[in-house]
C-alpha cells in the first residue's frame, strides 16, 4: 500500500523542485541568512586592509560554478572598491577570462550609479592580468618572481604593466597584502595554498568543497572563506550594515532564499522515500 511512496515519478520531483525555487524568486522573497563565522572572518580581514599594497584576486571559476562563485567575487570586489583598495584580477582557468573583465566593470558601474561624482578607473583602481596557462607552474612563477611586472609583462589588454599606475610600486609577492581565490575546481585551490605563500589567504568555495575548506581554515592556512552562496548571503548582509547606502542589490540573498526552499523539498522527498521503506517493511 505504501510502496508508491518509493516510486514517485521523476518528472513530479523535477516540477516540485523547480516550483519550490521559482515561487520565492517570483515574489522577491529575501530572508535574512543564517550567520556564518567563516564569512565574518573574511569580512574582518578585508576591513583591516590599509591602502598601500594591492590585493590579488584569482577568479578560477567558469560557467559551471558561477552561480556561487560569481556573487562571492562580486561582493569581495565591491568591498575592496568601497574601501579604495587596489586589486589585480588573475586566473589559471581559461574559461574564467570573461569574468576577469566583466566583474570589476559591473561593480564599478553599479557603485558609480550609487555614488555620482565618484569614479573607479581601470589601471588606477584595478587591473586585469588575464588567464595564465600552466596552473601550478604559473602560480609558483608569480610567487617567486623578483619583479612580476617583468615576469607577466602585460595585462589582459596587452598594456605593459609598468604603464599601469596601480603596478607602479608593485614588484613582488611582498607588495601583495592579500590573496582572494574563488573556485569550484578540484586542485586549483590546493595549488594556490601550496605555491603562493606569504600574503593572507581568503577563499571562496562552492558548497561541495565546504568540508574540505574547513580543514584549511582550522589550520589557519586560510583566514576566512565563503561557504558557498550561504556565505555570500551573510557577507551581503554585513556589507549592507557596514555601508547602509548600498541599497537593495541582493543577488546572493535571493539565491540563498530560493536554495533554502529547495533544501526543504529535497529533505521532504528523502523522508518520503524512507517512510515508504519503513511502512513497506512493517507491512511485510
Amino acid at each position: 500500500m505504501f510502496s508508491f511512496l518509493e516510486r514517485v515519478d521523476r518528472r513530479i520531483i523535477y516540477i516540485l523542485v523547480a516550483v519550490s525555487v521559482a515561487v520565492p524568486l517570483i515574489f522577491n522573497v529575501s530572508l535574512r541568512p543564517a550567520p556564518m563565522a567563516t564569512a565574518d572572518a573574511f569580512f574582518t580581514a578585508v576591513e583591516r586592509l590599509e591602502p598601500g599594497k594591492i590585493v590579488l584576486i584569482s577568479a578560477d571559476f567558469g560557467p559551471g560554478t558561477l552561480a556561487e562563485n560569481r556573487p562571492q567575487a562580486e561582493l569581495a570586489i565591491e568591498h575592496l572598491m568601497r574601501k579604495r583598495i587596489g586589486f589585480a584580477m588573475i586566473s589559471v582557468y581559461a574559461l574564467a577570462s570573461p569574468f576577469l573583465r566583466q566583474l570589476p566593470e559591473d561593480v564599478a558601474a553599479r557603485l558609480e550609479r550609487e555614488m555620482p561624482g565618484q569614479k573607479w578607473e581601470y589601471g588606477k583602481d584595478w587591473i586585469n592580468l588575464g588567464f595564465q596557462p600552466g596552473g601550478m607552474i604559473a602560480i609558483q612563477g608569480i610567487a617567486k618572481a623578483e619583479d612580476m611586472r617583468v615576469f607577466l609583462k602585460t595585462d589582459a589588454n596587452n598594456i605593459p604593466l609598468e604603464d599601469l599606475p596601480l603596478m607602479k610600486d608593485v614588484k613582488s609577492i611582498k607588495d601583495i597584502s592579500l590573496l582572494m581565490q574563488f573556485t569550484g575546481l578540484l586542485g586549483v585551490f590546493n595549488a594556490w595554498v601550496q605555491y603562493f605563500q606569504g600574503p593572507l589567504f581568503l577563499h571562496g568555495c562552492t558548497s561541495v568543497t565546504i568540508p574540505e575548506a574547513f580543514i584549511y581554515f582550522s589550520s589557519k592556512q586560510i583566514a576566512g572563506f565563503f561557504e558557498g552562496i550561504a556565505g555570500a548571503a551573510w557577507y551581503e548582509v554585513m556589507l549592507s550594515e557596514r555601508f547602509p547606502q548600498r541599497g537593495s542589490y541582493n543577488v546572493a540573498l535571493r539565491v540563498n532564499t530560493g536554495l533554502s526552499f529547495a533544501h526543504l523539498v529535497v529533505l521532504a522527498f528523502i523522508v518520503l522515500g524512507n517512510a515508504g521503506l519503513l511502512f513497506g517493511r512493517r507491512k511485510e
Binding site: 523542485v17 523547480a18 525555487v21 524568486l25 559551471g64 560554478t65 558561477l66 552561480a67 556561487e68 569550484g184 562552492t206 558548497s207 561541495v208 558557498g228 552562496i229 550561504a230 539565491v255 530560493g258 536554495l259 529547495a262 533544501h263 529535497v266
Partner: peptide
C-alpha cells in the same frame, strides 16, 4: 545538494 541547487536557483 546545496551546491547543485544553487546552480538551478541562479
Amino acid at each position: 545538494i546545496m551546491a547543485r541547487m544553487a546552480l538551478l536557483v541562479e
